[in-house]
Design a protein around this nucleic acid. Structure first.
Length: 308
DNA sequence: CGTCCAGGTCTAC
DNA sequence: GGTAGACCTGGACGC
């Protein structure tokens, strides 16, 4: 028994949305509790709709330019169905208007390809989840990131009715309260987060007690909270430096910063054919994109992730 | 087996 | 304000 709903794949400015490009917009979209099937393409994720009540949903291509959201098992109550639809729209970032960015990209031969619907970066259900995941990408191989996030979800996440007994599948991302109630040994011995353990603990505690309101950062408009001020707040979070702040800002739809790290720097050189380039040189190349500089940079690097 | 380092950050100069 | 060194982990290397 399944229930499904179709969501129109149109951006807030009426621009097209390429579902495959969106699902494969960046690697963090494929960390538990989300799983990407590139071939189909499809996204499977588990959402906590209310405290203690989770549901696993699949998102794939629907009819006539829509995304189909499907969940198996008992038909969700109306409130849950609405919540599922809202969560997926949020994750796919359908509320964002990218038309201004597309106008800029249209004049750039190396980026004009994005106009068919690329550039929508998926985000997690909450800002907290994006921050935790980003901290787990710092100073380690991708395999370690997967291991740490998987452990958090597997051990703390609320299970959907169809969840396997073990592992990260079928479980929602843990809440700040769930993560905040764990101690040092959990982060050291179970998550094996190393020196990141205290960062994650401290972050979860601050968010669960209300000392920090990360979700408000996600809601704030650029007028209310300019990128410069947002960056300062993010840099104040434990374990968040320049790379992590830029990454989190991309997840928040703030594209003024370039993600400069050990993957993007060499990838830029390979793509541009340059032998070497200082960060300032790379920043200058994308300066004309203004508040969309970071998005332009990211798309320049990831064009080959999806074959047309 | 030791060294290096991966989608860096923090602290101490 | 800029820069060295330390830092958990674990997989990839060189010896």
């Amino acid at each position: 028994m399944t229930w499904s709903v179709e969501i129109s794949l149109v951006g807030a400015g009426g621009e097209p949305v390429d579902l495959k490009r969106t699902l494969m917009s960046h690697g963090v979209g494929d960390l538990p509790p989300s799983f990407i099937d590139e071939e189909r393409p499809a996204l499977v994720t588990t959402l906590e709709l209310a405290p203690g009540r989770a549901r696993t949903v699949t998102v794939d291509a629907g009819t006539r330019g829509t995304a189909r959201v499907t969940t198996t098992g008992r038909r969700p109550p109306a409130a849950d169905a609405a919540s599922i639809e809202a969560c997926i729209s949020h994750i796919l970032r359908l509320d964002q208007d990218l038309s201004a960015f597309y106008e800029l990209a249209a004049t750039d031969p190396q980026l004009s390809w994005v106009l068919t619907g690329a550039g929508r970066m998926t985000r997690s259900a909450t800002v907290f989840e994006d921050v935790v995941k980003t901290i787990c990408t710092t100073n380690c191989a991708w395999s370690a990131t997967v291991r740490m996030v998987s452990a958090l979800v597997a051990h703390l996440g609320t299970a959907a009715p169809d969840a396997p007994a073990e592992g990260p599948k079928g479980r929602a991302f843990p809440t700040p309260e769930e993560m905040g109630s764990e101690g040092e040994s959990f982060y050291r011995d179970v998550v094996r987060a190393g020196y990141r353990g205290p960062y994650l603990m401290s972050l979860a505690e601050s968010v669960s007690t209300g000392a920090i309101d990360l979700e408000a950062l996600g809601r704030a408009t650029p007028e209310e909270l300019p990128d410069d001020e947002l960056e300062i707040i993010l840099l104040g979070l434990p374990g968040v430096g320049p790379y992590a702040a830029a990454h989190i800002m991309m997840m928040l739809g703030r594209y003024s910063r370039l993600i400069l790290d050990s993957w993007t720097r060499p990838t830029f050189l390979a793509r541009s054919g340059m032998k070497r380039a200082k960060d300032s040189t790379i920043i200058r190349r994308f300066k004309s994109y203004g508040l969309y500089s970071g998005l332009a940079f990211w798309l320049y690097l990831t064009e080959s992730w999806v074959e047309d």
